[in-house]
Write a protein that binds this DNA or RNA. Structure first.
Lengths: 236, 236
DNA sequence: GGCAAGCCATTGGTGTGACCAATTGCGGCC
DNA sequence: GGCCGCAATTGGTCACACCAATGGCTTGCC
C-alpha cells in the first residue's frame, strides 16, 4: 500500500471538521490557516482546497478565502463524505436516508441483473448467498460483511446500468458503516439470509419481477429494522 | 461571473478527452505532458490532476504518471462527468441509464415530498406546473426547461431525503442535455403537462401514493419516448 | 451628515525552481 | 538464468515571487 499521502491526511481532517459541523457553513477558511494548522505548505493546502471544492464542501473566493458551503451543496453521495458523516453526529439520519436510496435503487438493479447478468455473475451470486448462509450461522461479522458487500456490488454492477453500478460504493460504505458501528446483530437474522438467497436465485433464473420483489423485501426489512432501532423523528 | 479559471479550462479539456474515449483507460499521462500540451505550469497541471483523481478518472502513481482508470471507476454521477459524456459519443446510452435512475428515484422522492414538503414548496410546485402549461402552449424551450428543472429539483430537495436532493443536479443535467441536444419535441406533449400537474397537485394534497404513481407515469413516459427514439439494443 | 467614488490591503491564481522519495526497469553480478 | 542492486523517471512537497480580483475602508463631494 502506498504510504498515506500528506494531502490525504489533511483532507481527512478538514473534511471531518466540516461534515461534523465543527466548522459551520459560511465560515471563511484561508489557505494559510489550513497550512499553519496542519503544518503543510501552501501547495498542499491548495490541493486539499481543490479536493474539498470537488466534494462541494467549500467554494473558493478571492479576497475572502474558502467559504464553507451549506449542507445542500455537499456531494453527500461521495464515499468520503459518507464515511466522514457516518463517523460523526447525524449518523442515524445518514443511515436512514441512504437506506431509503437503496430502497429506491436496489430493487430495479436486481431486476436489471436478472435480465443482463452474465452466466459467471449469476453463478457467483448463488455461491455468495450460500456462503453467507454458512458464515451467518457462525458469528464471523467481518467475513460476512465482505460477502454481503460483494453480493450487493455484484448486483448493482451487473444491472446493465452503470449509474446503479456507481452506487455500489455507496452501498458498500453503508454496509461497512452499519457493521463497524455495531448496528448489526451478532448473528444475521434468518429472514435476511432467506431474502439474499431468494434474490440470488431469482436473478440466476432470469426472473426479473421476482428479483425485484425479493430485493424490495430485503431492503424493506432493513428499513424496518432501522426504524425500530431509531425512534422515528417525523417532521409532520 | 468569475473569469473562467485556467485550471477549469484544462480540466474540461482533459476530462472530455478521457470520457470521450480519446484517451483509453490504462494510458499513462504525466504532469509534464499535461503542462506542455495545455501551456500551463506544473502547479496548474497538478491541481487538474487532483480534480481528475477526485472524479475517479485517473489514479496517480509514482514513477508511472496518471493512469487513466476504466469506466467502472468513474464518478458517473458527477455533473461534470455527465456533461462531458452527454457531449461525446455514447450520449444515448448515457440518457438511457440516467433516465432509468430517475425512474428508480423520482417516484419515491415525489412520495417523500408529498409527506414532507413545506407549504411554500407545495404552492411553488402547483405554480410551476401551471406556468409550464402556459409556456408549453408556446414554443419557448429554454424558459420551459428552466421551469422543468426547477420543478424536479424542488421535488427532489423537498423529499425529506438529502440523498435524493443530491441527485437534483443529475436530473437538471439530464433535462438540460436533452433540450440542448435537440431531443425534445418543439412543443411539449400534452401528456407530459398533464402528468406534471398531476404530480404537483398530488404533492400539494399530501397524497403520497398518488404522487408516486403520477411521477412513475411521467418518468415512464420519458423512458418510452427514449426507447422509440433510440432503437433498443438489447443484450439478451 | 450621508452617500458615492476611488484607493489599498488581503487572498486566491499562477509560475518557477529546487529537492525528496518511491517505484520501476535495466544491467551487472553471482 | 536468475537474483540483486543501482539509477532514471516521476509524483510529492516546499519556498518564494508576482499577478489579479475583490471587499472594505477612506476620502471627498454634495
Amino acid at each position: 500500500m502506498p504510504p498515506p499521502a500528506l494531502h490525504n491526511a489533511v483532507l481527512d481532517a478538514v473534511g471531518r471538521a466540516i461534515t461534523s459541523g465543527d466548522v459551520a457553513p459560511g465560515t471563511p477558511l484561508t489557505l494559510e490557516s489550513i497550512g499553519t494548522q496542519h503544518h503543510v505548505s501552501r501547495t498542499v493546502a491548495r490541493e486539499v482546497m481543490r479536493m474539498l471544492e470537488g466534494l462541494g464542501l467549500v467554494r473558493s473566493r478571492r479576497r475572502v478565502g474558502l467559504v464553507v458551503l451549506p449542507r445542500e451543496e455537499w456531494n453527500v453521495l461521495d464515499p468520503r463524505v459518507i464515511r466522514w458523516r457516518l463517523a460523526g453526529p447525524g449518523r442515524d439520519e445518514q443511515l436512514r436516508t441512504l437506506t431509503e436510496l437503496r430502497h429506491a435503487v436496489e430493487p430495479l438493479a436486481a431486476a436489471g441483473a436478472a435480465r443482463h447478468a452474465s452466466a459467471a455473475e449469476r453463478a457467483e451470486l448463488v455461491d455468495l448467498a450460500a456462503r453467507m448462509r454458512v458464515l451467518g450461522s457462525r458469528g464471523d461479522l467481518t467475513d460476512f460483511l465482505a460477502l454481503d458487500v460483494r453480493m450487493h456490488e455484484l448486483l448493482l454492477r451487473a444491472s446493465g446500468n452503470e449509474m446503479f453500478g456507481a452506487l455500489a460504493v455507496v452501498v458498500a460504505e453503508v454496509l461497512a458503516g452499519r457493521t463497524h458501528l455495531g448496528l448489526m446483530p451478532a448473528s444475521p437474522v434468518p429472514e435476511a439470509l432467506d431474502q439474499h438467497e431468494a434474490v440470488a436465485h431469482a436473478v440466476a433464473a432470469g426472473d426479473a419481477p421476482a428479483a425485484e420483489a425479493a430485493m424490495a423485501a430485503l431492503v424493506g426489512e432493513v428499513r424496518r429494522a432501522l426504524d425500530t432501532a431509531t425512534p422515528a423523528e417525523e417532521t409532520p
